[in-house]
């Protein structure tokens, strides 16, 4: 891409960023991130005073659980009402009367919506680790933080991609919101134990369950995240435990990052193909 392309993309991104900072969902996001951080520090405080040093993993584990539930929702709300909203409020009509290409616009808003979610996490997690060390004297588990960030990044991307696809295909915003909620509920609700129930009821074999759980980015992220922290049956759930023992932790991590990333890119590509061809307004 030429310099002019970057310049126009930056101009569009900047405009969208302004829009993001004015939006209500950003407040919602900040509150959720703040809550997660508070939860983490509170847990750290309790553990250090009651039990003394117990290692970081337990604290981070609760954070991981919360992250796995919250990140998809955040990504969906940030990206699921972009294109349809821009169509409705006249942003597209303004931008596309200017020499902005469809690609420049699409890449700019995708990047803004994704980074707005990721960057705070990239800052917050290491900061919390350091705070924990300063306040309670725990060792900072850098490897674990690195892994969690990688998994969070791919999980966010998979749902940002899904959200963008919904916002591109569904013009009606109320309908889009419904699809976003359904996507979240199906992915979060389709976790291990629900699959286990299905497995028993329909006598699915282990491979089918593997495939089904592999289709759900929440599931694979969760397995990857938790197996590296606490690979026990109680934490991982039956399917996860089975998989962790069968395929090993490294493979679970690989699956848990590659698969959501792939889903994210696939959805993004489908959304882009649709956006590239149709009517703009």
């Amino acid at each position: 891409m030429k310099v002019g392309g970057f310049k126009r993309m930056a101009a569009v991104a900047r405009l969208d960023l302004v829009e993001v900072f004015q939006s209500r969902w950003l407040v919602f996001h900040s509150v959720l991130y703040a809550l997660l951080a508070a939860l983490f520090l509170f847990a750290g405080l309790r553990e250090s005073s009651v039990l003394g040093y117990t290692g970081m993993s337990r604290l981070l584990l609760s954070l991981c659980h919360a992250l796995i539930l919250v990140l998809p929702l955040l990504a969906l709300t940030a990206s699921g009402l972009v294109v349809n909203r821009h169509r409705e409020d006249g942003t597209l009509e303004l931008l596309f009367s200017l020499p902005v290409s469809r690609g420049e616009y699409f890449v700019a808003v995708s990047a803004v919506r994704y980074l707005v979610l990721l960057v705070p996490l990239l800052v917050l997690m290491p900061l919390l680790g350091l705070a924990d060390r300063l306040l309670f004297g725990h060792v900072v588990p850098w490897v674990f933080i690195g892994r969690s960030l990688t998994i969070s990044a791919t999980l966010l991307w998979s749902f940002a991609g899904l959200g963008l696809a919904i916002s591109t295909f569904v013009r009606n915003r109320t309908k889009a919101l419904m699809y976003l909620l359904i996507t979240w509920i199906v992915c979060v609700g389709g976790l291990d134990f629900a699959l286990m129930g299905l497995m028993l009821q329909w006598r699915l074999n282990a491979e089918t369950v593997f495939v089904l759980s592999g289709l759900n980015p929440v599931q694979s992220s969760r397995l990857a995240l938790l197996s590296s922290a606490e690979p026990s049956l109680a934490i991982l759930g039956p399917v996860g435990f089975y998989l962790a023992n069968r395929v090993g932790h490294s493979w679970l991590f690989l699956l848990g990052t590659l698969q959501p990333a792939l889903i994210g890119w696939a959805s993004w590509y489908v959304a882009w193909r649709h956006f590239r061809r149709g009517d703009l307004v």
Binding site: E19, Q22, D89, G90, E93, L94, S97
Partner: peptide, 11 residues
């Protein structure tokens, strides 16, 4: 181009 309905931006 001047559109019939101006954009409703927060920007």
């Amino acid at each position: 181009y001047v559109p019939q309905s101006p954009p409703q931006l927060s920007a």
